[in-house]
Design a protein around this nucleic acid. Structure first.
Lengths: 124, 124
DNA sequence: CGGTATCCCCGCTGATACTG
DNA sequence: CAGTATCAGCGGGGATACCG
């Protein structure tokens, strides 16, 4: 287990932010999306936040921003070639997250049983 | 790429927090540590934060808290058996983080070259 | 359409002091 | 030793309005 944790923190940096996972999910799924399409796909996000999160992803070379010089403006976002390499990591996090939700719900069920046993004992 | 992003967010939840990665790093490396040993290993952390982050990890069944009923008090923290299963994920994040730092520094170098070329052009 | 610019709130984090 | 309690600050995130 030879991880220097600063690198883990590096990996976290570009996933952290309330909307980054969902943005990546949408772009991975749909390939290329316009700004307004992303906004519609992310209910509740404001333009400000969408812009901010996209700029961070762009800075990290995960997302590409293509501007069409025209009126009305048109901007398309997509995962960069380099960004595609994040796929396996996202998949690994997804897998772990899935099984963890399972694990937590099992823990929760045990607690429920314990509470029920406790309640039953109290009735006596 | 069939990830529902909520599971990715689940995975993020227990890594998020200013100190969680370092805490896990220490516990993975050293196996078992007392509260004060952890505090010494994490320069700048307050007792309050250390306690809070440990409690969250404990809630997620990643970290085990063993209390010795004695005076003065003694409490030891360690990775749970379940928590050990996070090892591969942490390793994956570490690997990706490592190569990403490399990638970013390459991007930075290109920017430097571009700036130098720009400066050279300006001299003419 | 695809953004900035402002203002504001709340929750994470920290500093400090106290306690069993 | 291993915490809790309390107060304070700062910044991520949101609502709204304006702009090229």
């Amino acid at each position: 287990m030879e991880e220097n944790c600063s690198t883990v923190e590096t990996a976290l940096e570009m996933l952290v932010g309330k909307w980054k996972p969902v943005i990546l999910y949408q772009l991975f799924k749909n390939g290329t999306l316009r700004f307004s399409e992303l906004q519609r796909a992310l209910p509740g996000i404001t333009k400000k936040m969408l812009t901010a999160q996209l700029r961070e992803l762009e800075y990290h070379d995960i997302v590409h921003r293509k501007i069409y010089m025209q009126i009305p403006p048109k901007v398309e976002y997509s995962i960069t070639e380099y960004g595609l390499k994040m796929g396996p990591l996202l998949q690994a996090m997804n897998d772990w997250g899935t099984s963890h939700l399972q694990h937590l719900s099992e823990l929760y069920d045990e607690d429920r049983k314990a509470e029920q046993a406790e309640a039953a004992a109290e009735i006596k």
